[in-house]
Computed example of a mutant assay.
Amino acid sequence: MKINENTLLEGHRAVLVPYNEEHVPRYHEWMKSPELQQLTASEPLSLQQEYDMQKSWREDNDKCTFIILDKQRWAEPSVEEEQCMVGDVNIFLTDPTDPSLAELEVMIAESSYRGRGFGKEVTRMMMCYGITKLGVKTFQAKIGLDNQVSISMFKKLQFQEVSVCNVFKEVTLELAVDESVRTKLQEDVADMKERDYKQTCSNKHELVLQ
């Protein structure tokens, strides 16, 4: 999506940035992992195919993608952005007849960052962005039945199980956005800041880490 091509979302632990060309080599290395291929139901791509995918995701009107960065590392001027990459978070507008329905997907690719609250924080940040910028009213998450960690996380975020597909071995969880959901999200991401990506990258050393 073009809408977030110059958007940076700053949270407590994580920073979300647009998926750019310079992120592709690290992303490509991640997706060589059989574990991540299984968790994301993805097929391995060549490096060129990964670059093509990055371009199409930037252009497509039904996909909104952010790369997750470790905020603490990213704020160090000497550290390159690619070295701070933790995973990615996506919104897919899967129903052309209902643009308010969105599938939400989060991947913490770096295993050392799992179980530290990154997944829950970036999911809340992405939901807030989806509601306010994309007009999302219902979120879905489709998760492999063996990925109990993700299923548990989404249930803690008040998602409810709506169906199980034994053929694809996945469960679909759903959350309708009402006023109480919106209020709770705003409270949970009260410290989230939306910034100009290019401008912030040029003076990120001025950020005060909390």
Results as ranks from 00 to 15, higher is better:
174 E>F: 01
198 K>Q: 13
71 K>V: 05
10 E>F: 00
114 R>G: 02
149 V>C: 01
26 R>G: 01
151 I>E: 10
12 H>G: 01
145 L>D: 10
2 K>P: 00
195 R>A: 06
31 M>F: 14
142 K>Q: 15
59 E>K: 15
146 D>R: 14
33 S>G: 06
37 Q>E: 11
21 E>F: 02
158 Q>I: 03
136 V>M: 06
177 V>Q: 03
80 E>S: 15
21 E>G: 03
11 G>C: 01
89 V>P: 07
158 Q>T: 12
131 I>P: 07
56 S>K: 11
125 M>A: 01
123 T>E: 06
147 N>M: 10
197 Y>M: 09
49 Q>F: 07
41 A>W: 03
49 Q>H: 08
169 K>N: 13
201 C>V: 14
31 M>I: 04
58 R>S: 09
194 E>D: 00
39 L>R: 13
144 G>D: 05
104 L>T: 13
196 D>K: 07
29 E>Y: 07
129 Y>D: 03
155 K>Q: 15
40 T>I: 02
50 E>M: 09
68 I>P: 01
81 E>Q: 15
128 C>P: 00
186 Q>S: 11
85 M>I: 15
171 V>F: 00
160 Q>E: 15
160 Q>D: 10
62 D>I: 02
163 S>L: 12
87 G>H: 05
100 S>G: 08
48 Q>P: 00
141 A>T: 08
92 F>Y: 13
178 D>M: 04
94 T>F: 14
19 Y>R: 02
98 D>T: 08
188 D>F: 00
194 E>P: 00
17 V>S: 08
192 M>Y: 08
127 M>F: 08
13 R>I: 07
183 T>I: 02
154 F>V: 10
67 I>E: 10
16 L>K: 01
95 D>V: 08
69 L>F: 06
103 E>Y: 05
120 K>F: 01
75 A>W: 05
131 I>S: 10
140 Q>L: 10
158 Q>L: 06
86 V>F: 08
74 W>A: 04
1 M>K: 03
3 I>S: 12
150 S>I: 06
6 N>F: 10
95 D>C: 09
191 D>C: 05
104 L>N: 11
116 R>Q: 15
149 V>K: 13
21 E>M: 05
119 G>S: 04
62 D>W: 03
119 G>C: 02
194 E>V: 10
64 C>R: 04
40 T>Q: 09
2 K>R: 09
74 W>H: 09
184 K>N: 08
116 R>K: 15
102 A>W: 05
14 A>H: 03
195 R>W: 11
43 E>K: 10
135 G>D: 06
116 R>I: 01
59 E>V: 13
